[in-house]
Write a protein that binds this DNA or RNA. Structure first.
Lengths: 118, 118
DNA sequence: GCAATATATCAGGTTATCTTGATATGATCT
DNA sequence: AGATCATATCAAGATAACCTGATATATTGC
């Protein structure tokens, strides 16, 4: 019952403005962040592991990880020297898969959109 | 049977790279485009109608509409003087709703992310 | 404490994206 | 045809986002 009330209150605080929605979308709007998310959806990984997989400068990976953490999609845990990142919002997998499906059927269209670069 | 083969071929062309996924996400990453999509998910509308709702310069709305059309999310149909836009990919509603849910539970986090502006 | 390892942060230059105003296209009406 | 209405396109300036290299922080092992 308290749960229902809590849900109701939460539901009011829902309905975020388009500004925030857009910000979320831009969060997914970077190929590097998507690759990182994909790796983390596979399983939790340390930063070095991600860097190895992506073959990118460390600062670049670290910056994108910070972004993902800031947005609350991933969390960190220190294990000795290394820091392990993992996805904490289960729905991230669903969004990415849904997007992947849509893109699969619109690849040519999307690729041709000149207002958005590659 | 030809259909099955076609599907198989299509399925190979599936699995789009992160670059295209990211491009899609950036397509949703603009508040104006999201507002337009929301209006069009409500029902098909003419350009003028959208302009009225958004109170924005005509060229701005038109540019964003072009982007949405380019990506294959909306289609147009001329009716006399006006041009009617409507959403053609049913999944657009699902993506936006899913994103809305995630953002609702992460609003504070996302808002605080300094790597992405408002 | 000191060196080494792992990760984070920051500033500067570069590129991408958004916005605006002006102009172009295209259809309708008289 | 000419005028008008509806929409599209383009160029230029402003802003946002990305990348890199250098530096900072934090933990472990000696």
């Amino acid at each position: 019952m308290a749960t229902a009330k809590a849900r109701a209150i939460a539901s009011i605080s829902h309905a975020p403005g388009e500004t925030l929605l857009a910000k979320f979308a831009r969060g997914l709007g970077d190929p590097t962040r998507l690759r990182i998310l994909q790796l983390l959806l596979d399983r939790p990984r340390s930063v070095s592991e991600i860097i190895d997989h992506l073959s990118m400068p460390q600062s670049r990976v670290s910056n994108h990880l910070a972004c993902l953490k800031w947005c609350g999609y991933v969390a960190t845990e220190r294990q000795g020297r290394v820091i392990i990142y993992r996805v904490i919002d289960r729905r991230m997998r669903a969004v990415i898969e849904l997007i992947r499906e849509i893109v699969a059927d619109n690849a040519a269209h999307i690729a041709s959109c000149a207002r958005i670069g590659d």
